[in-house]
Design a protein around this nucleic acid. Structure first.
Lengths: 268, 268
DNA sequence: CGGCACGTTGAAGTGACTCAATTCGCGTGG
DNA sequence: CCACGCGAATTGAGTCACTTCAACGTGCCG
């Protein structure tokens, strides 16, 4: 739980605005409301738990760099990772309107995060409806990733599951602008990959070996290198629709919404 | 896709308000905004697809009675059910801010539904922020169920998975007020249960047989009867935290919070 | 009363698991 | 600079839960 408060301004607000602009248009009035938020920036060490099951957090975490992961843990101690989160994600927005955490949030590797107080985010509903809509949409994007996780782990074989999660992370890293042409960060241990995909460490090792032997990928030192994207995607039966990357920055274009007037015109 | 438009008013708005009041407080001003919504009520037959992958729906579906299910389908034809939805659920709210459907929605048995136009719901963000917050929260509750599905199918054995989903449905039916003391509707075929839990029809049959032999449950004619709730719950390692049933009508507790000058009044 | 979908049960096969033994990579300290 | 230690990854071997294949039972509707 070790976290150092960071001195530098870090521009967490600006990063958040950039993130939301990736899928929603945020009018400048709402942008100003976002810019008034006062997040607390922190650095967390690999392996640190940021929020635990049963906690009642009063902030939502925004990832500035590094990788976080959500997980469930059963009484018997088994762990299931639910989703991975990289720069630009708001994993913890799920807790904004839920009292008690039903899952935990940890840092997979060293990460920089910004904590936005719930009350400030909730205030956006009144102050900046378009910004609130963008945040809402962000939580729906998260939910789509959860749904895909169900299908991935339910319908696919071990090798396919692995290929699928690698595809997902690569595409998301690209979208976040933190991937190179053919590589991105992937700091999970094989044990953790197993706990994400519902398979044993041994199976993960063999699955990686298979994809490596087929010259599709290379994984070393927390880095994923994609050698043949087309074939990897085919091997995973990966369809990126669920990531909704095509949600352009201009959705239902509003601009000068008339707060009172009922809905004939769309407001975002 | 057969659906008959229903003549009677059906009070879908009232049902929606009751639903949201289960977990959020809706001030009367916002209640009036909800009451002004003009949903289209329809009856759908068992097995009918309401929304398909790739569609771009412009309404969100509210369940008045019966059971709906979300599912993914892969190119090769395999099907994975993601979640089940009963009276009071808003399965389709997930599509409110996502353009294209990444999953499909179908009727498991005959159902009555109400379709709320997206633009009217989106207008609530400006008109009735507390109502919007309640809807947002509703989508977060859905997401919590998705997360639990990942863990259920990833970490539990066949019998445990079955027991878990039966626990979930029983508790949710209770909360929705449509369960008897020891029984509720459960209209899935064993094939469908298999596609929900990631197991084969044969395994489902044997798992049901096991729970029946242990005198925990009885399933017949689309009805689930719970014979021994305590032991069923133990068998499933079922912890209802993730359903967030304790979210009283008074949420977020930001009573005297001072979120900047604007939101001093709590708005949900 | 036949047809058909759904459910049950037996038997054989297999993918993934556990157990276990090495090997690799890397940081630490003698 | 090399030895050591330790976590992580690889590889082999045996086992098991769940799968598939197949036959049979059951209940419902035309």
């Amino acid at each position: 739980m070790r976290r150092k408060v960071c001195a530098l301004p870090a521009n967490a607000d600006a990063a958040l605005i950039r993130r939301l602009r990736r899928h929603s248009s945020v009018p400048s009035r709402d942008e100003r409301a976002l810019a008034r938020l006062r997040p607390r920036v922190a650095v967390v060490a690999a392996g640190a738990d940021l929020v635990r099951q049963g906690d009642r957090p009063d902030t939502s975490i925004f990832v500035l760099s590094g990788m976080l992961a959500r997980y469930h843990i059963l009484a018997r101690g088994d762990r299931q990772y639910i989703s991975l989160h990289i720069a630009g994600d708001l994993p913890d927005l799920q807790s904004l309107f839920l009292g008690v955490m039903d899952h935990a949030l940890m840092a997979v590797d060293a990460a920089r995060i910004a904590c936005f107080p719930h009350e400030q985010l909730q205030a956006l509903l009144v102050e900046a409806p378009s910004a609130a809509a963008a945040l809402w949409r962000q939580t729906l994007l998260d939910a789509a990733i959860f749904r895909e996780a169900v299908t991935r782990n339910g319908l696919r074989s071990g090798v396919e599951r692995l290929a699928h999660v690698l595809c997902e992370q690569f595409v998301r890293a690209k979208a976040a602008g933190i991937a190179r042409a053919d590589a991105c960060r992937f700091p999970l241990t094989q044990t953790q990959i197993g706990q994400l995909l519902g398979m044993s460490l041994v199976s993960v090792s063999r699955a990686i070996g298979t994809l490596r032997k087929d010259r599709l990928i290379e994984v070393r030192g927390g880095e994923l290198r994609v050698l043949d994207w087309k074939r990897l995607q085919a091997r995973a039966a990966f369809d990126p629709t669920y990531l909704h990357l095509d949600l352009g920055p201009a959705p239902a274009t509003n601009q000068a919404a008339e707060p009172r007037e009922v809905g004939a015109r769309s407001f975002m």
